[in-house]
């Protein structure tokens, strides 16, 4: 890539403030998180609003990281499957956290069903589902509590938007957009 102007223009057009594309390690999540927090603090946002954006950023990136390190995904033999992208942007007064990563085609339907269900719930319904999931026994070896998507939906000011795009060679690209 000799000239980054087109990439830069398209990021600016989308209101991107901070973005990362590649393989997520825990230390990258931490470092980028510091940058996100410093940026938000410099914007004179209410502390609560800063925490909402930061927490959606953490849940989104940790979801990408947890999924990308799964053994069944590694078994597909595609190096880009371990990579992801995160974009934190601004649209007027609102912040948008978008994330993308590859998922196995076989996981697509269940993921879409979970998200469709979340889209249909109001704040009270999301809270009830969150509490129900909190009390659920987790399968051994779980990396997460299964609460990340519900938590993002609770912090969002609009229903979560997502897409699952077949990449033509057996994986789906999962794109999630959270408006806070």
């Amino acid at each position: 890539m000799g000239n980054l102007i087109d990439l830069r223009r398209s990021l600016s057009r989308e209101g991107a403030l901070i973005c990362f594309n590649g393989s997520f390690s825990h230390s990258i999540i931490e470092e980028l998180g510091k940058a996100v927090k410093h940026y938000l603090e410099s914007q004179d946002l209410q502390k609560g609003a800063t925490m909402d954006v930061f927490s959606v950023y953490i849940e989104a990136t940790q979801n990408v990281r947890n999924y990308s390190t799964r053994a069944d995904l590694a078994a597909c033999g595609r190096s880009e499957a371990a990579e992801g992208i995160i974009v934190i942007g601004r649209e007027g007064e609102r912040h948008v956290v978008s994330s993308g990563n590859y998922v196995l085609s076989s996981d697509g339907p269940a993921l879409a069903e979970r998200l469709n269900r979340l889209q249909g719930l109001d704040k009270a319904g999301l809270k009830a589902l969150y509490k129900e999931q909190m009390r659920r026994e987790l399968p051994p070896g779980s990396q997460g509590a299964g609460l990340g998507l519900i938590d993002m939906a609770r912090k969002a000011s609009e229903p979560l938007e997502f897409s699952l795009t077949p990449d033509g060679v057996g994986l789906l690209f999962f794109s999630l957009r959270v408006v806070i």
Binding site: E59, L138, G148
Partner: peptide, 12 residues
């Protein structure tokens, strides 16, 4: 000051 969801579950 902040807990992610899996920490919330562990703290619960």
């Amino acid at each position: 000051a902040y807990l992610n969801t899996s920490s919330i579950k562990a703290l619960m």
